[in-house]
Nucleic acid binder design. Structure first.
Length: 461
RNA sequence: GGAGAGGUGGCUGAGUGGUCGAAAGCGGCUUCCUGCUAAGAAGUUGUACGGUCAAAAGCUGUACCGAGGGUUCGAAUCCCUCCCUCUCCGCCA
């Protein structure tokens, strides 16, 4: 299987074959975004009411009205500018023929110079409006799918299923207590090395973390996801493409000297793999799985989960990413969610699936399931995976298209992703769910092979 | 970090001021021809946004030769800045 990529390829660049595809390595570092992308401007023009209604279901006011105004002004200015250009080109054409009398030449020159001044004004206005339009468009979140329930926060989420039996544990301990006694975590030294919400994994924790990572990657690979390990530092274009920027600048770590960001999730790098490419319909769907460390500043989370290993600035995660035909994304979303659930089931961790309400969904998502794992020590379900369908939202921002089999014009594909799973939280959940009265923790059977057959973590005497 | 080279259409690759959206070849598509080892012939072939049209086709305007700016009546072509890629050296896992 291979596809040809219809994008520009630079000289001296070699095509690289990967997974049977070929792709081009291009980074145009497009900072400005064409106004035709983001939410479909056409949709906004044609059915503003529908868009407004859909957006109103999200938290925060997103007025389309100002956008429509700017759009109208922009198009008017564009038409003006194009008219001036047309005349200017016409004048150049006259010169080309060489049949212009000397005095007419002078006249034309004079007109052209005058035109140039007008053009400069018009151009400035056009550029400003385009920038304004992009700014507004980039700040608009995806429209919630009609099947997404109303609601403002997590209380509006709808439980869709439960799996597994909640273990009966007398006086359950929390994972940090267990993990500290089992020599999994050293929270103090993490703080010493960087700051709060950074943790050192000690031998058992380090080995468990690594075992989980390998187990999950193998598991997904066996189910048709192809493994990739992309860069952990990505440029701004990537972050904008998946929807992290420009709205949430404060949530991420950034290298001051390089305009590079530490990925908050490998969703960013993996989704951007095919940015600016035109794939063939036959290449879809594409499934990838990737491990990466993730870095989040957790701005706005002050006081939340300050103890333990649940909310860290740096954490490991195995991610699932899909690219598919628009008409298949709903089905692929369900399958992807089942793949994430399969990990929890293999590990024998009780969980439930929540359908997020419109107000609780992330910026780029059109529909999202959260998987929540049971934490006996906390006596509640906690998020461990988030499986989202983005529709064509990210595809527009990343210019990610495919050519239909019938040879028609390239169309935007759909992207999806989900955690499969957040490794730190999985470790914490294992500690809490498989804790024994003596403080030891049984290791899930599927994980033992990744730990040289180890079956139980025992506290040091 | 030092030195050099380079960025043009699906690909290769011409193009140093108007006749260039851009030669030629390859590839793709369409048609024709031939039966013989798969070749030949002809034509066609980028993207985006607008206008015209009931709509499509067609016609038409504008932009796009890495990005941005400048010179000029006019820029792929000249000048400046930046980005990226490649090669060699240094350093390094």
């Amino acid at each position: 299987m291979s596809f040809s990529v219809t994008r520009v390829r630079h000289r001296n660049q070699k095509r690289t074959a990967i997974f049977g595809h070929t792709w081009t390595h291009i980074d145009r570092r497009v900072i400005g975004v064409k106004s035709s992308v983001m939410l479909d401007l056409r949709l906004i023009r044609e059915d503003m009411e529908k868009v407004e209604k859909a957006l109103a279901r999200r938290n925060g006011g997103f007025s389309i009205r100002s956008l429509a105004e700017v759009d109208e002004k922009f198009r008017k200015t564009l038409a003006e500018w194009e008219g001036l250009r047309a005349r200017s080109n016409q004048i150049s054409g006259e010169f080309k023929t060489g049949k212009v009398a000397q005095e007419d030449k002078e006249k034309l020159k004079a007109e052209s110079i005058e035109l140039k001044a007008n053009l400069a004004n018009s151009d400035k206005e056009k550029t400003e409006l385009a920038a304004k339009l992009d700014e507004l468009l980039l700040a608009i979140p995806n429209l919630p799918d009609p099947s997404v329930p109303d609601g403002h926060d997590e209380t509006g989420n709808v439980e869709q299923k439960r799996w597994g039996e909640i273990p009966k544990i007398a006086n359950p301990k929390e994972h940090w207590e267990l993990g500290t006694a089992l020599r999994c975590f050293d929270f103090e030294r993490g703080v010493k090395l960087s700051e709060s919400r950074f943790t050192v994994l000690l031998e058992n924790g380090a080995k468990m973390e690594r075992a989980l990572m390998n187990f999950m990657l193998d598991f997904h690979s066996a189910r048709g996801y192809r493994e990739v390990f992309p860069p952990i530092l990505v440029n701004r274009t990537c972050m904008q493409g998946t929807g992290q920027l420009p709205k949430f600048e404060g949530d991420f770590y950034k290298c001051a000297d390089d305009e590079l960001y530490l990925v908050p999730t490998s969703e960013v790098s993996v989704t951007n793999l095919y940015r600016d490419d035109v794939l063939e319909e036959a290449d879809l769907p594409i499934y990838h799985t990737a491990y990466s460390p993730n870095f989040r500043r957790e701005a706005g989370s002050a006081g939340k989960d300050t103890r333990g290993y649940i909310r860290q600035h740096q954490f490991n995660k195995v991610e699932l990413v899909k690219f598919c035909l628009p008409e298949r994304s709903e089905e692929e979303h369900e399958k992807l969610t089942l793949d994430a659930e399969a990990i929890l089931e293999a590990l024998q961790l009780p969980y439930r699936r929540m359908l997020l309400c419109a107000g609780d969904m992330g910026f780029s998502a059109k529909k999202c399931f959260d998987l929540e794992v049971w934490f006996p020590g906390q006596d509640k379900y906690r998020e461990i995976s988030s499986c989202s369908n983005f529709g064509d939202f990210q595809a527009r921002r990343t210019n990610l298209r495919y050519r239909p089999a019938d040879g028609g014009k390239p169309r935007y594909m759909h992207t999806l992703n989900g955690s499969g799973l957040a490794i730190g939280r999985t470790l914490a959940a294992i500690l809490e769910n498989f804790q024994q009265p003596d403080g030891s923790v049984l290791i899930p059977k599927v994980l033992s092979p990744y730990l040289h057959g180890l079956e139980v973590l025992e506290p040091k005497r």
